[in-house]
């Protein structure tokens, strides 16, 4: 309970804001959006969705439609937000598999190795790019843990995995990130990105 209060305070939201948002208060909705939209975009980008802004807009609209199902707890609103985000990302991946759209950056020669030396992390985009080098399910767990700030219990409720499995997977991912960062000067170590999305829900 103390963790939930801490999480809600870290979000900058309280029950009054959620209650006002449920009544359609634009200021309250704007407050919620400003508190959660950056995390939502980073999470969606980490999962490798091609149009993260479009997916984020769909998620917010769906939240508005389902806000009446929740109480005034900000933690639950955040949980619903990222639950919907995971599903919309899955839909986006499936859609991209049905109608693949290849960017010009992807048209590179095939003899180029899939690993590249990791330089200094100067921005959020660099950190997200580093996460995308991991397996998608591990990258998702680390994003929820670090970017969103969820506990293992909240992630377990969203993903359906056990807290122990989440802890082990996040530790493995952090170890891989450490290795990637340490290999910036070494050419031997590489963590290859899977060719196809390996998310469990795909």
């Amino acid at each position: 309970m103390a963790n939930e209060d801490t999480g809600a305070a870290a979000l900058g939201l309280d029950t009054d804001i959620i209650a006002s948002a449920r009544c359609g208060d634009r200021n309250a909705l704007g407050t919620i959006w400003r508190a959660l939209n950056p995390k939502l975009l980073r999470f969606i980008r980490t999962l490798g969705v091609q149009e993260p802004d479009d997916v984020a807009s769909q998620v917010w609209l769906e939240i508005a439609r389902n806000l009446h199902r929740l109480d005034d707890d900000p933690i639950r609103v955040r949980g619903l937000l990222f639950t919907i985000a995971r599903r919309r990302c899955t839909d986006a991946h499936r859609r991209s598999l049905r109608r693949p759209q290849q960017s010009l950056d992807a048209l590179r020669p095939t003899d180029v190795p899939t690993w590249q030396p990791i330089g200094d992390i100067a921005s959020t985009l660099d950190a997200e790019a580093l996460l995308r080098r991991l397996a998608p399910d591990i990258a998702e767990l680390i994003a929820l843990r670090v970017i969103v700030g969820m506990s293992n219990a909240e992630i377990a409720a969203i993903t359906g995995k056990s807290e122990g499995a989440i802890r082990v997977a996040t530790h493995r991912g952090l170890r891989q990130i450490q290795a990637l960062l340490d290999s910036s000067s070494s050419e031997q170590l590489s963590v290859t990105k899977p060719d196809a999305p390996a998310m469990d829900q795909l």
Binding site: A21, N37, P38, L41, S57, A64, D120, I121, D126, V146
Partner: peptide, 29 residues
């Protein structure tokens, strides 16, 4: 650095489109 980058404050690019989204949400609610 990795942690600092992921937990950093929201950039201006991440807060673009607030008015549009909030309007749509308000209408839906």
């Amino acid at each position: 650095a990795f942690d600092r980058a992921l937990r950093s404050q929201a950039t201006a690019a991440e807060l673009v489109g607030e008015h549009t989204v909030v309007t749509l949400m308000s209408a839906a609610i």
